[in-house]
């Protein structure tokens, strides 16, 4: 199998995995009853793994394809805009932090989780033209940190244990 074919197959499998994780996340009960709509970001385990194993391009590709597919499958184009803004900001932050090389996967993932939330809230503030949403940022900083830690630990385990040959 040529290297290119192998790469295409690999990205495909990763996208499928990320998609399944999105679905699992959607059917799980809500994490935090007081402020609904908060998600763990399970698919980001795959994104973290890709970022460290295959570099920024693969991580961005899988992230974008997953979001497009999720919005097509579960039909919410409005939500796509928010996820896009959040995901792009968090990917940029994570790519830069990984380059700077002073945090472990857990730290990078925490920064990614928090910046994801900031990106979404900023988009919502711009679209709705209200500053009041800042209230959500406080709660989202905490949930972003906690889920970032969990995602980072899972990602680190994958990076460590999945053989390099794949």
């Amino acid at each position: 199998m040529s290297k290119k074919t192998k790469n295409v197959a690999f990205i495909g499998v990763c996208t499928a995995l990320a998609l399944v994780l999105s679905y699992i996340e959607a059917i799980l009960p809500p994490l935090f009853a007081a402020v609904p709509g908060i998600k763990m970001g399970l698919p980001n385990i795959i994104i973290m793994f890709l970022l460290y194993r295959r570099g920024p391009a693969a991580a961005i590709a899988v992230s974008l394809i997953r979001m497009l597919l999720v919005s097509l499958l579960f039909g919410n184009m409005m939500a796509l805009m928010y996820s896009l803004a959040g995901a792009m900001l968090s990917l940029i932050v994570m790519i830069i932090l990984r380059r700077l090389n002073f945090l472990s996967t857990v730290g990078v993932s925490v920064a990614g989780g928090v910046s994801h939330n900031i990106g979404q809230i900023l988009t919502a503030m711009l679209l709705l033209e209200t500053a009041e949403l800042g209230y959500y940022l406080v709660v989202l900083t905490i949930t972003g940190t906690v889920s970032g830690m969990l995602i980072g630990l899972c990602g680190a385990a994958l990076i460590k244990h999945i053989p390099n040959k794949i």
């Binding site: 945090l103 472990s104 730290g107 925490v110 920064a111 209230y135 940022l137 406080v138 900083t141 905490i142």
Partner: peptide
């Protein structure tokens, strides 16, 4: 290097928790 990573991670998490705690207190 691993120790340095972990220390930086913990610093980052503590900073975020502190910011959130101030925000929660305020709110």
């Amino acid at each position: 290097t691993v120790k340095r990573y972990v220390r930086n991670d913990i610093l980052l998490i503590l900073c975020l928790v502190l910011i959130a705690a101030i925000g929660l207190f305020y709110l």
